[in-house]
Design a protein around this nucleic acid. Structure first.
Lengths: 347, 347
DNA sequence: TTGTAGGCGTTATCAA
DNA sequence: TTGATAACGCCTACAA
C-alpha cells in the first residue's frame, strides 16, 4: 500500500494538484464547492500532507523553535507551556528540541532553521560560551531565556530575558547575613561552571564581602562534574558539609531541588531546619512552598519571563523593534526554612 | 546571502553533487581523498544539509519519535533521558514531540511519520480511546508507555509497557486497610477520566470491597476538569475534604504531587501526618523520599520501563518479535507518611 | 477559478 | 570511483 499523495487526491477529485493545494492552504481564489469536495475526499482517504515536502518548498512557515537544555528541569515545564500558548495566540506553531548538555545548541538550531524555515528561536537554559560566536549565523531572531550569557556580554545580535543571577543571589545571601547568620555555606555548581552557577556563586561572594564576612572556602561546596541540580546531589553535598566538622549556621543552595536534598540531610543527622541550620534555595518552584518547612527562596517570575521572551521575539520578527535584553526582578520569598540566628549560639 | 546548498559544495570541490552526498553519508564507494577534501570544504563553508530535503528523498532514516502528553510530568523527564540514551546506543536518533492534552496523539504521530520517515514511535502518557482506532494506520511499530490503554484492550497492532495501575492502586489501599485505616479518602482524577485515574480509582474500590469496607462516596474527591496532577490541586482538594467534616484517618492521592499538596493542607489545618491523617502517594518521584515526612508511595520502575519499551521497540523494528505487552511490578514503599491506625481513636 | 510545469535540496539509480 | 539525472511530495508562477 503506497502512501497517498496530493496527486492521488487530485486524481480522485478530478482536479489539478494546485487546486488541492489551494483547498488545503485556505487559498482565497478557489470555488467553495470544489474546496468542500476536496476536503471531503481528503478526510475520507486519511490523506496527510508531507511536511518535509512542504518545508522544502515554502519560504515562510510560521514556526518557532524552542531549544531546551535539560528537559527535566522543573522550571522549564511550565515555561514551555506558557511559550506555546503565546505562540499559539499569534497563529504560529512551536517545535521543541531537546539538546543534550554536552551538545552545541547553536548547531542544532542552525540545522532546524534550514529544515523548518524557522521564523524565530528561543533557547531555554544554559548556554555555552563557544556557541555564541556562531549565534550570528542564525538568520531568525533569537531570544535567550534564563541563560547566563546576557550577563557576560550583550549585543544586538540576539535578545535575552532572565533574572540577574548575581543580584538575586546577592539578595538572598545578604538577607541571610542581615538575619545574623555569618558562617553561611553554599552548595553550588561544578567548579568550572560558566553558567548560572558561576553567577550565583559570584553573588554569594559579593554579599559576604559587603557584610564584612571572610569567605571560608571550606563552606563552598561544589558539585562533581557528574552531578546535577538534583535532590540527591543536594543531599550528598550537604551530608559531606555536615560531616566535615566545619561550623555553619546557614546554607544557601543554588537551586530549590538542591535545597530540599540539603534539608533532608540535615534531618537525617538529627538536626533541625532552621533552628540548627537555616536552608535557602533558589528558583521558586512549586515544591518550595509545599515542603515542610516551606523553603525560603528566590522566586523567578517564570511566567512573566516566558511571556516577555515571546513578546520580544515577535516584535523582532515583525521588525517592530531591535533585539533587546531584559532582566526581571526575582522575589525574595521568606518562608519557614530560615529564621533569625539565635543569640545564644556561638558565632 | 543565499543559503548554501549541496550544489555549491560540489562546484567548489569540482565534483558532482552525488559525490558530495556520498561523502556526507559515509558511503562506501568513494575515494578517501576526495571525501576528505569535500568534508574540508563543508566545514569551511559551514554548510548544513537541509533535513527536509533529506527526509523527502530518503527511505530509511533511523529516527524514533517520542510523543509526550504532559512534558511537565516529573516522571517523564528521566524516562525521556533514558529512552534517548537507549536509542543512541542503537545509532538511532530521537525526536520529541509534545502533544497537548486535548490533542489527538495519533494524528500527530501520523504527520510526523510522513515527515520524518519514522522507524518507531513511543507514546508517553495518557492515551485517548478515540485515538486507538487510528493506531493501525501507523506503519512504524508503536510502544505505549505508562498509558491506560493496554489494560482495557490488548492486541497485536502495538506494544505496551507500564505498571498495572489497578493492581498497584489496590496494593496501596489494601496496605492502608491492613494497617487499620478504614475511613480512607482518595484524591483522584476527574470524574470522567478514562486514563490511569480511572484504573487507580478502580483499585481503590476493589481494595475497600475486599476488606469489607463500605465505600463512602463523600471520601472520593475528584478533580475539576480544569485541574491537573499538581501540588496546588492536591492542596485544594484535601482542604475541601478536611472542611467537609467527613471523618477520615487516611487519604490516598493518586500521584505524589497531589499527595504532597495534601500533606501541606493537613499541616495548615493544624493536624499532623501521619498521626492525625495518613497520606499515601503514587509514582515514586524523587521528592517522595526527600519530603518530610517522607512519602509512602507506589514506586514505578521508570527506568526499567523506559529500557524495556525501547528494547521491545527495536525488537519489533528488526522483526525479531511481534508486538508485546508487558506489566512491570510497582513497589510499595512504606515511609513516614503512613503509620498504624492508633487503637484509641474512634473508628 | 483552474490546470500545467518547474523547482525546492537531497538521495538513489544508472552509466560511464 | 564518479557524474548526470530522475525522483521525493509539495507549492506557485504562469497560462488557460
Amino acid at each position: 500500500m503506497k502512501t497517498i499523495t496530493i496527486k492521488d487526491i487530485a486524481k480522485l477529485c478530478g482536479v489539478g494538484v494546485s487546486t488541492v493545494s489551494r483547498a488545503m492552504n485556505d487559498h482565497p481564489d478557489i470555488n467553495p464547492e470544489t474546496k468542500q469536495r476536496i476536503m471531503e475526499v481528503i478526510r475520507e482517504t486519511n490523506y496527510i500532507p508531507n511536511n518535509s515536502a512542504r518545508n522544502l518548498k515554502r519560504t515562510d512557515s510560521k514556526t518557532i523553535a524552542v531549544l531546551v537544555k535539560g528537559l527535566d528541569n522543573p522550571l522549564f515545564g511550565r515555561m514551555i507551556r506558557v511559550i506555546e500558548e503565546e505562540i499559539g495566540k499569534k497563529k504560529y506553531s512551536m517545535v521543541i528540541h531537546q539538546v543534550d548538555s554536552f551538545e552545541d545548541e547553536v548547531a542544532a538550531a542552525l540545522e532546524l532553521e534550514r529544515e523548518k524555515r524557522l521564523r524565530g528561536i528561543i533557547f531555554l537554559g544554559g548556554f555555552y560560551s563557544e556557541s555564541s560566536e556562531n549565534l550570528s549565523q542564525l538568520k531568525a531572531p533569537v531570544v535567550l531565556v534564563t541563560s547566563a550569557k546576557p550577563q557576560f556580554e550583550r549585543n544586538n545580535t540576539y535578545s535575552a530575558v532572565s533574572v540577574d543571577d548575581v543580584k538575586e543571589s546577592y539578595k538572598m545571601v545578604d538577607y541571610l547575613c542581615r538575619q545574623g547568620y555569618r558562617d553561611i555555606a553554599i552548595i553550588t555548581a561544578t567548579m568550572h561552571d560558566e553558567s548560572v552557577g558561576k553567577l550565583r556563586l559570584l553573588g554569594y561572594y559579593k554579599a559576604l564581602q559587603e557584610n564584612n564576612i571572610k569567605v571560608n572556602e571550606k563552606l563552598v561546596k561544589y558539585m562533581e562534574e557528574s552531578e546535577d541540580y538534583s535532590m540527591a546531589c543536594g543531599y550528598q553535598l550537604m551530608t559531606e558539609l555536615l560531616e566535615s566538622g566545619e561550623k555553619m549556621s546557614a546554607v544557601f543552595a543554588i537551586s530549590d531541588s538542591l535545597a530540599i536534598g540539603a534539608c533532608r540531610a540535615v534531618y537525617d543527622k538529627g538536626l533541625r531546619v532552621p533552628e540548627d541550620i537555616a536552608v535557602a534555595g533558589y528558583d521558586g518552584i512549586d515544591i518550595a512552598s509545599y515542603y515542610t518547612p516551606s523553603l525560603t527562596t528566590i522566586k523567578q517570575p517564570m511566567e512573566a519571563i516566558a511571556k516577555e521572551a515571546t513578546r520580544i521575539l515577535f516584535n523582532v520578527i515583525r521588525n517592530k523593534s531591535m533585539p533587546s535584553h531584559k532582566f526581571f526582578e526575582g522575589e525574595l520569598v521568606v518562608r519557614e526554612s530560615t529564621g533569625k540566628k539565635r543569640k545564644n549560639s556561638a558565632d
